[in-house]
Amino acid sequence: MADRRIADRRTDDMGITGTTPPSSAPGRWWPPGLARRDTEAREFMDAPDCDPGRLDRTYRQFRTVNRLVSGWRRVYRQWIRPRLDTERPTTLLDIGFGGGDIPRALTTWAARDRLVLHTTAIDPDDRALRHVAGLPARGVHFEQASSADLVARGDRFDMVISNHLLHHLDATAMEALLADSRALARGLVLHNDLARHPAGYHLFAVATLPLARGSFVHQDGLLSIRRSYRRPELQTVVPTGWRVTSMFPQRLLLTHDGTPR
């Protein structure tokens, strides 16, 4: 998993620090701080001693934020639902469930479509597990574990997914996650993440400003966008066989399909 230390330096709510755009930056000028991926900043909620009240509100607000920007309803219709069956159970693993809203939503949508989906969701952070303990499970098995723990256990699933996880990882952790994903998945792997872009950054900054004092959604969301990839950047750091596609709004979908044809 990603290094969960808070960065020593702090940014203001707009979160831009000055850097010179590299020669490989996008063709049109981008604001300093977005032309290059920020690999130093750490999200405030990842600090072990962060305010528990703000953390709990952040977990609860993930549901609204993900519903508006993550595109999982579309991913479900296009990628997941066609692989489900009305009688044969399909197993799905969510790595790094955070607030638990994504696995609960997927399982609910499948049930409404009268399809059988058995979902397991893991997160190594015990605070995430404590949060979901107070929520209706809706058919999801939540567990405090890492992907490496499940690989060591010999677990396998028909599909493996994650949401907003890739931008947390350094090169070593990214390599480990992708290897674990393939080891755990019999078929499809879907890693859904943010795409770094000025338009998305400034829109998110304005839209979430009312949440800045009550939770970490505003500050950490801006840090996450700065840490996220552009499509060409992500494609260059993943092994052969992984495909990066763009998705509206400002999304990247990293996929690997090991399903027998």
Rank of each mutant, 00 (worst) to 15 (best):
W79S: 10
L254G: 03
G187V: 10
E175D: 14
H167E: 09
V140I: 08
D56Y: 03
V238M: 12
A199P: 00
R138N: 14
D257N: 12
L92S: 05
A7P: 06
P21E: 05
S23I: 12
V140R: 01
L92M: 10
F142I: 07
P31V: 04
R4M: 08
D13G: 14
T20Q: 07
Y201G: 00
I161G: 02
L115Q: 15
R127T: 07
L211C: 06
R186K: 11
S228N: 08
W30F: 14
L223I: 15
T236C: 09
R77M: 09
T119M: 08
S162C: 05
R196Q: 13
E43G: 02
V244I: 15
A185G: 11
L184M: 06
Y201V: 00
R251W: 06
V238K: 10
S224T: 04
I80R: 00
T86V: 06
T240D: 15
V69N: 02
R37L: 11
D46H: 11
A128W: 05
L177K: 07
T58D: 03
L254D: 04
Q78K: 14
P52R: 07
L166M: 09
V132F: 08
R10C: 04
M1Y: 04
L194F: 03
L211D: 03
D49K: 06
G15N: 14
T86Q: 13
V140L: 09
R226D: 07
R182Y: 01
T58Q: 04
L55V: 07
R156W: 02
L209V: 10
E40G: 14
A25P: 08
G258Q: 10
